[in-house]
C-alpha cells in the first residue's frame, strides 16, 4: 500500500481526460475531413498505454497524442479511410524512437522530423518512416552526426524503396 509504483499511474480519471483531449482535437481536424469516434479515441489511449509500457516509458497528463494528431492531420497521405490506423502506428513509432534517439530530441523536433519524412521521401509509407528514415536518423544521432545530413539513397536503395 505504501509503495510508490509509478508504472501504474493510469487511473480511470487520467484516461478519461486523455480521451477527452483527443476528442477535442476533432474540432481542429474536421476542416481536413478527419474525425475520431469516441471508441477510436479510447483505443488510441490504450495503444499509447501499451506503447509506453513496451518501451519502458511513462507519461504524465494528456501526453503526446494531440500533438501527433495536430502535426499529421494535414498530411496529404492521411484520409478518413486510414486516419485512426495511421495514428495507432505513429504513436507506437514515436515512443520507440524516443528511446532510440536517447531522448536527445524534443517531442516537437521528433514529430516534425517524422512529418517531414512521412510527407517527403517516405511518401506516406509508415514502413519506410520507421525502418529507414527514423532508423537512419537515430543511428546518426547516436554516432554524433547531424541528423539532416542523411545518406543519399543509392540507386539500389531507391529500387528497394519501390518495393514498398
Amino acid at each position: 500500500m505504501l509503495s510508490f509504483e509509478i508504472m501504474n499511474i493510469s487511473s480511470p480519471l487520467i484516461l478519461q481526460q486523455a480521451v477527452a483531449e483527443i476528442e477535442k482535437c476533432n474540432d481542429f481536424t474536421s476542416q481536413f475531413g478527419l474525425m475520431l469516434a469516441h471508441r477510436d479515441a479510447v483505443e488510441l489511449v490504450e495503444t499509447r498505454a501499451l506503447a509506453l509500457k513496451n518501451n519502458g516509458r511513462i507519461e504524465f497528463g494528456g501526453g503526446v497524442l494531440d500533438k501527433i494528431i495536430r502535426e499529421f492531420c494535414h498530411s496529404p497521405y492521411i484520409s478518413m479511410y486510414n486516419y485512426a490506423e495511421t495514428l495507432h502506428d505513429l504513436t507506437e513509432i514515436f515512443y520507440f524512437y524516443k528511446n532510440e534517439t536517447l531522448d536527445l530530441l524534443s517531442d516537437d523536433d521528433l514529430l516534425k522530423f517524422m512529418k517531414d519524412s512521412f510527407d517527403g521521401k517516405c511518401q506516406g509509407s509508415l514502413e519506410l518512416l520507421a525502418g529507414r528514415a527514423l532508423a537512419n536518423m537515430a543511428r546518426q544521432l547516436r554516432y554524433g552526426d547531424d541528423m539532416n545530413e542523411s545518406e543519399p539513397l543509392t540507386n539500389a536503395e531507391e529500387d528497394e524503396d519501390d518495393e514498398y
Binding site: 509509478i6 516509458r57 511513462i58 507519461e59 504524465f60 515512443y95 528511446n99 524534443s106 517531442d107
Partner: peptide, 30 residues
C-alpha cells in the same frame, strides 16, 4: 500523500525534460 507525490513527480519530470518531452523513461522517473 501518494497522489501528491505522483503529481510532484510529474512536475519534476517536466523540469527534467525542460518542457520538451511529455514522456520519460521509467528508470529515470523512478
Amino acid at each position: 500523500i501518494q497522489m501528491q507525490c505522483l503529481a510532484f513527480l510529474a512536475y519534476k519530470s517536466e523540469r527534467y525534460n525542460g518542457g520538451e518531452s511529455s514522456s520519460i523513461r521509467v528508470e529515470v522517473a523512478e
